[in-house]
Computed example of a mutant assay.
Amino acid sequence: MKVLIVGCGAMGRNHVRVYSENHRVKQVLAVDAFQESLNALKDLKNTTTFTKLEDALKEKPDCAIVAVPTALHFEIADKLLDENIPLLVEKPITETLEQGKKLVAKAEKQKTVLLTGHVERFNPAVQALKKNMHLIGKPIYASAHRFGVPTQRDVGSPFIDQAVHDIDVISFLYGQTPKEVSAIERRISDEKSSDLCSAIFEFGEFTATVEANRVTPIKSRELTILGTKGAAKLNYITQELAIFISEHGDYKFNTFDEVFQRIGHGTEIKPYFVKEEPLKVEANHFLDCVEGKAVPMISGRDALYAVAAVQAGQQSAKSGKKEKISI
């Protein structure tokens, strides 16, 4: 199989690495307008580089990954859909909701595979939690923290670059999309855009807070979900997952000492799963979709709601008001 990868910046290089190592891929066609970016790929096997997309298309790729800056997602993806090439577009699917709607509608009309790269869905710990959500009962509240160090790269709003991961994961785990959001966004050290955001997403009877920034001296990506029967704690980076089941339920305490002794008491469960790089899991899923062996785990509707949630969060930060989320 020939895989075309358009955009070989930080994320694009990871895609090239992963697909060049995949035994199902015969050749990787890497495209970037900057030769310097392509030079970084010289040691990767089965990889041919191009500075022009048109030249790479002459090689007749079987599928493509769009990893250019978000502002260019629509332009490149639309051009590749014109060629009826199965696509994986990095998250978020497009810069605006309207652009996303056009891409999804076009892919559906053509019956062309279109997957969005919400890579954290493919994190084995997230998949394990999805399978065991019933253990914590009815979800009540979630809290996500995605903290990173400052970067010199122009990656835009932390809503688009970081928080979108957790918005998608929480929606995936809960099984519904958020309806409203209240948010703030700040610029702390980034010269070009905001680099800190905090949002409260309301799903009806379920609420989730999402915090993301690029100003901390540490890298941290964690998610906690509270349910009526317990709680789950997940570390995206280490792929550690712990589920805590409440042992007392309707237990009535007789004395203060008994209350104190039982605080935090519960059964800890650590589901078994094999740790693996999420991008490699995503790549195999995409190739399965291209070969007709699977349907995209992330639907067009899922991708559009992620964009809508991001836009509503940014709008709330500007207006100072609660904003509705819809597509």
Rank of each mutant, 00 (worst) to 15 (best):
K2G: 01
K2V: 00
V3A: 12
R17Y: 10
E21P: 02
E21A: 15
Q27K: 10
A30W: 01
V31A: 05
Q35C: 08
S37L: 03
L38Q: 08
T48Q: 10
K52S: 07
E54L: 12
A56P: 15
L57F: 10
E59M: 13
P61K: 09
V66K: 08
A67F: 02
A67K: 04
A67H: 11
E75R: 03
I76A: 09
I76R: 10
E83R: 03
N84A: 08
I85K: 08
E90S: 12
E90I: 06
T96A: 12
L97W: 06
L97T: 03
G100R: 07
G100S: 11
L103P: 14
A107G: 10
A107P: 15
L114W: 05
G117H: 02
N123C: 07
L129S: 10
K131P: 12
P139R: 01
I140M: 07
I140Q: 07
H145V: 05
R146C: 13
F147N: 14
G148P: 08
R153H: 01
V155G: 07
Q162Y: 06
S171R: 07
F172M: 13
T177K: 02
T177I: 13
E180W: 01
E180K: 11
A183F: 09
R186E: 13
R187H: 06
R187W: 02
I188H: 00
E191A: 00
K192F: 03
S194V: 12
E205P: 13
A208N: 04
E211K: 04
A212H: 06
N213G: 11
I218A: 13
K219Q: 00
A231D: 04
N235D: 15
T238A: 08
Q239P: 05
Q239R: 06
F244P: 15
F244R: 02
S246Y: 09
D250A: 15
F253Q: 09
E268V: 02
I269G: 06
V274M: 12
K275W: 10
L279I: 01
A283L: 00
N284P: 11
F286L: 07
L287W: 02
E291Q: 14
I298W: 02
I298K: 03
V307R: 13
V310H: 05
S316A: 14
E323A: 05
K324M: 15
I325T: 03
S326H: 08
